[in-house]
Nucleic acid binder design. Structure first.
Length: 106
DNA sequence: GGTTTGACCCTAA
DNA sequence: ATTAGGGCCAAAC
């Protein structure tokens, strides 16, 4: 089981209506500072994957995605559909981490 | 072994 | 608010 596989595996554990950060995922797997690699793993996902990539955002609650196939608008729409509040400020999408960050202990 | 590439993260300006 | 720089780590050459 390589690092990417573990990223996907962990991502699937994120409950609907919650979000996780890149750093959080990295911490759960191996090293807390491998956040960049998590992003890389998600970046190579095929369109239509069953991995809930939209639930993974950056540490400040922003949608930092840039991939045209997985646009921020798309991600925001998916999150809203799951019940996550998403705010738009200055063309940037935000999520209230205080409310929606995934607590692994749950 | 080394270099390059990031959907990151933190700090400083 | 934005930008720049450095550090970080795994994968792919």
């Amino acid at each position: 089981m390589n690092f990417y596989q573990r990223v996907y595996e962990t991502a699937r554990k994120i409950p609907e209506g919650r979000v996780a950060t890149y750093g959080q995922i990295a911490s759960l797997i191996t090293t807390p500072r491998a956040a960049r690699v998590v992003g890389f793993a998600l970046r190579i996902l095929p369109a239509g994957t069953d991995v809930p990539w939209q639930r993974i955002i950056n540490s400040r609650g922003r949608l930092s995605i840039r991939n045209p196939f997985f646009s921020p608008d798309h991600q925001a729409r998916l999150l809203k559909k799951e019940g996550v509040e998403v705010f738009q400020r200055g063309g940037q999408w935000w999520v209230d981490l205080e409310k929606y960050l995934w607590d692994v202990r749950l």
